[in-house]
């Protein structure tokens, strides 16, 4: 149950050893470059020459590819259909479907957008596959991200699967009392209310108790928090981060200067 929302796979690799902030910097650099970079084909270039090789360097290539495919194929498929059909503006018609022209220009736009989304999602996926959520959060907390923010992120990862279990229990209980949950769309929608109300009110009570429980453990203490897990931040990490920032500035700047 615990691993349901955490993508993390424990392996031994240079990417796993990398400081979480370095990986986060890498992710944001890739996203910035993919969306704002000087050339449109940069996104696909970054995916094929940076993200994909890194995933194999991290020994998570297989998991990376299958998760990327599962997450992105539906989105990209939808995007292609919508953009190639519905984007306005004429151009070179490739195929004609009913009254709609699929133009080369629109397919091109759809392709660029798809590769940008691919870069964005897959780089985050690489981060999540190689970084333990608590390592990421304690590293960010150490660098001054407020405790409540990192708590909210890590606790959501843990509590959402618990909510699913609870929802299933309530659903079973309501079904045992004769509530119809199967059938057509209207029936299913009507079945939602007796599920949502106990789930929401029950969760509010839980939230109060949990707030007491973490207060009782000095969560709001003004003392400087420490961290049990030691997270490496080697000189090379710092150099990589600065390097990435320079590359981003250079490439985004080149776009401005070249105009």
């Amino acid at each position: 149950m615990r691993d349901r929302l955490s993508f993390y796979i424990l392996r031994e690799s240079p990417i796993h050893r990398m400081n979480p902030l370095t990986k986060l910097t890498l992710v944001f650099s890739l996203i910035l470059l993919a969306f704002l970079g000087p050339v449109e084909w940069l996104a696909i270039l970054l995916f094929t020459t940076v993200i994909l090789p890194l995933s194999f360097l991290a020994h998570v290539g297989r998991e990376f590819l299958s998760a990327t495919a599962r997450l992105l194929l539906p989105v990209i498929g939808f995007l292609f259909v919508m953009q190639s059909i519905f984007l306005p503006g004429g151009g070179t018609a490739l195929v004609q479907v009913w009254v709609l022209d699929i133009t080369l220009e629109n397919v091109n736009i759809a392709f660029v957008n798809a590769t940008r989304i691919l870069t964005m999602i897959s780089s985050f996926l690489l981060l999540l596959l190689t970084t333990h959520p608590s390592a990421l959060m304690s590293d960010l907390a150490r660098r001054g991200v407020p405790g409540p923010i990192s708590y909210t992120v890590t606790s959501t990862l843990q509590i959402l699967p618990q909510m699913q279990v609870k929802a299933a229990t309530i659903m079973d209980a309501q079904r045992a009392r004769g509530l119809e949950t199967q059938g057509n769309l209207m029936k299913r929608i009507r079945a939602l209310l007796p599920l949502v109300a106990p789930l929401v009110f029950g969760s509010l009570v839980d939230v109060e108790e949990r707030a007491i429980a973490i207060e009782a453990r000095a969560f709001n203490s003004p003392r400087q928090k420490t961290s049990l897990v030691e997270i490496d931040d080697r000189p090379i990490d710092r150099r990589i981060r600065w390097g990435l920032i320079l590359v981003v500035i250079f490439l985004l700047g080149s776009r401005l200067w070249l105009k």
Binding site: Q158, Q162, E209, I212
Partner: peptide
């Protein structure tokens, strides 16, 4: 120190 009834709600939820 305070501990109470529901063990489930006393788990901080941020630790693995």
């Amino acid at each position: 120190g305070l501990a109470f009834q529901n063990p489930f709600n006393q788990i901080s939820g941020s630790k693995f």
